[in-house]
């Protein structure tokens, strides 16, 4: 899939009028430019719109943008610049929070690609709820008996399950990118990603009860 998602937002710096190679921060004069109204989190962080991203690049971008939009950095500026900095800082924080976590990133990307939200498509892979129910019953027994060994074993089962689900999410996103499928196939692929992500939600909830 050709990535042209970033090109649309590139403009000239409002301050020095130089061409900017990235949105928001001018590479020439480092002026903070207005936030385009239609920018998604991938564009904001200068990343291609895909599931597999370079976390190091994301982190570096986060540090740079955070520094340039930090309120302390603009304390002496005009109110409109301060307001812009605050808007950017909030957007950057939210983008980082979303993209740095693979589960949040997958859910965000899925909806960006036109996939269903969990409220619209609650399905899970076949037999999954049965497994979940069994695990929950075992968890309850372990809790009642204060059986630390059983709890540790169940935690491991859940972690393995979560990682397996995330692996298949990764694979499904890669499939989606690899083939220019017809709309029906594409919708089916998006639906399958939603199924895996719904399953992850259940696993994550159970894991949170173990903490």
């Amino acid at each position: 899939m050709e990535d042209n998602t970033n090109k649309a937002v590139l403009t000239k710096c409002t301050h020095c009028k130089h061409e900017m190679s990235q949105p928001l921060l001018c590479d020439h004069c480092e002026t903070l430019n207005p936030l385009p109204s239609f920018m998604d989190f991938f564009q904001l962080m200068g990343l291609p719109r895909r599931f597999e991203i370079d976390l190091k690049t994301l982190h570096e971008k986060y540090i740079t943008l955070s520094r340039h939009s930090h309120p302390d950095f603009h304390a002496e500026d005009e109110p409109d610049v301060m307001a812009l900095a605050m808007t950017v800082a909030a957007a950057v924080n939210e983008a980082y929070r979303t993209l740095s976590d693979p589960i949040r990133r997958a859910g965000y990307l899925l909806e960006l690609l036109g996939g269903p939200a969990s409220a619209q498509d609650k399905s899970v892979p076949g037999g999954f709820l049965n497994t979940m129910l069994m695990l929950q019953e075992e968890l309850e027994d372990a809790r009642v008996a204060a059986d630390a060994a059983a709890k540790a074993r169940l935690k491991q089962v859940l972690l393995t399950q979560r990682d397996g689900l995330l692996k298949s999410v990764e694979r499904l996103f890669a499939d989606l990118e690899a083939a220019a499928a017809c709309e029906a196939t594409r919708q089916q692929q998006l639906h399958e990603i939603r199924e895996q992500l719904n399953a992850v939600s259940f696993v994550r909830k159970s894991l949170s009860q173990l903490e």
Binding site: S118, A119, K122, V124, L129, N130, M132, L133, Q136, L197, N198, A199, S201, F202, R204, K205, S206
Partner: peptide
């Protein structure tokens, strides 16, 4: 009947 709500992680039988 076994159903679940992915938004909150609840499972009901």
């Amino acid at each position: 009947g076994i159903v679940g709500a992915p938004e909150c992680g609840d499972v009901m039988k």
